[in-house]
C-alpha cells in the first residue's frame, strides 16, 4: 500500500487579526507533508515555527485557509463540527501539558470513558475497554477511580495516551508529548509509544522542539521554520547531516551531554555563525 494515510498539501493557516485592516497572522505558509500507515513523522522547530499549528490543523482545531488535508483519500480540512466528530476514531491527540490536558475534576475512568460513551459504547463494554487501556499503558487497575491530581506528570501522560488510544485511531498527533517530563519518564513514554505502534500499526505525527527526541522516535523528520518546512527526509540524515543552514544551526545549538563532544560542537557552532556573519553582507 503506497497511498499515504495522511496527505497535507500546501496548507496555509492564517489567524484573523484584530480590526478590519489587519491581514491577520500567517502561521503556516504552504506546508506539505505525508504520513504513511505505521509510520512516525517527526516535526521539529522552535517556538513560533508553526509546528503546533500544523498538528492542530490536522486535528481540525486550527482554520485551514488554503490548501488541503487528505485522510485516506478524503478531504478533511474545513469539515463541519459534526462531520469532524465522526473522525474521532481515526485521528487522536496527546498534548504537551499532562496537567491541563486532563480535567482536574473528573476521575480517570470518566476521562477514559468519555470518547467511548460519545461513540455509544454501553457501560459494561466501556468498563472493559477502560481496564484494557489502563493495562496497555501500565497503570494500576485501581487508577480509574482516582483524580488526575493523584498522579505524577509521567503517569498523567500515560492517561492521556490511554485516552487517545480508546477509539483505536490510525493516527495520533503527539504535540510535544514528552517535553514536560523528566529525563527518565521521557525515555519510558517514548518506549511505550514505540511499543504501541509496533503492536497496533498506528501512525504518529510527533511534534517536538527536541531534535534528540525526534531522532529517537521518527522514521522521517521534517524541520519547520517560520511557518514553512525547510527540510525533510529520512530521520537519520536530517538529524545528523542536515542540508539546510537552519537545521544545521538547530543541530549545533542543542548541547550534547558529553563535555568533550559539546566543546567540539560549540567550536563548530561558533565557526558556523562566523561564516554566516561574513556571508550575510554579501
Amino acid at each position: 500500500m503506497t497511498d499515504p494515510l495522511l496527505d497535507v498539501r500546501d496548507v496555509e493557516v492564517r489567524y484573523p487579526g484584530r480590526g478590519l485592516r489587519s491581514s491577520g497572522f500567517l502561521a503556516l505558509r504552504g506546508v506539505s507533508l505525508d504520513i504513511r500507515e505505521g509510520e512516525t513523522v517527526g516535526l521539529v522547530g522552535e517556538s513560533g515555527s508553526g509546528k503546533t499549528t500544523l498538528g492542530r490543523a490536522i486535528l481540525g482545531l486550527a482554520p485551514v485557509t488554503s490548501g488541503g488535508i487528505g485522510y485516506r483519500g478524503r478531504e478533511i480540512s474545513g469539515l463541519s463540527r459534526r462531520q469532524r466528530r465522526a473522525l474521532s476514531d481515526q485521528i487522536q491527540v496527546v498534548f504537551q501539558d499532562p496537567y491541563s490536558s486532563l480535567n482536574p475534576s473528573m476521575t480517570i475512568e470518566a476521562i477514559l470513558g468519555e470518547p467511548l460513551t460519545a461513540r455509544g459504547r454501553t457501560g459494561g463494554e466501556a468498563g472493559r475497554r477502560i481496564a484494557e487501556l489502563l493495562e496497555r499503558v501500565a497503570l494500576p487497575s485501581d487508577a480509574g477511580r482516582r483524580l488526575p491530581r493523584e498522579f505524577s506528570g509521567g503517569q498523567r501522560q500515560r492517561i492521556a495516551i490511554a485516552r487517545a488510544l480508546a477509539l483505536e485511531p490510525r493516527l495520533i498527533v503527539c504535540d510535544e508529548a514528552v517535553s514536560a517530563l523528566d529525563l527518565s519518564n521521557r525515555a519510558r513514554i517514548l518506549r511505550l509509544l514505540t511499543e504501541i505502534q509496533e503492536t497496533t500499526g498506528v501512525s504518529y505525527l510527533f511534534v517536538s522542539h527536541d531534535l534528540a527526541v525526534v531522532r529517537h522516535i521518527s522514521h522521517r523528520v521534517a524541520v519547520m521554520y517560520r511557518g514553512e518546512i525547510v527540510e525533510s527526509g529520512d530521520g537519520d540524515t536530517v538529524t545528523s547531516d542536515p542540508a539546510h543552514p537552519y537545521t544545521r544551526r538547530l543541530l549545533l545549538a542543542a548541547p550534547v551531554p558529553d563535555p568533550d563532544l559539546q566543546a567540539r560542537r560549540r567550536r563548530e557552532r561558533a565557526a558556523l555563525s562566523d561564516r554566516e556573519n561574513h556571508e550575510r553582507p554579501a
Binding site: 505505521g38 509510520e39 529525563l183 534528540a212 529517537h216 522516535i217 522514521h219 522521517r220 538529524t239 551531554p257
Partner: peptide, 17 residues
C-alpha cells in the same frame, strides 16, 4: 547512571519505515 542512560542524544536514529 540510570539518568545518563535515559539520555537520547547520540543514540541511533530510528531509521526509515
Amino acid at each position: 547512571r540510570s539518568l545518563l542512560d535515559s539520555i537520547l542524544d547520540g543514540g541511533g536514529a530510528r531509521g526509515p519505515l
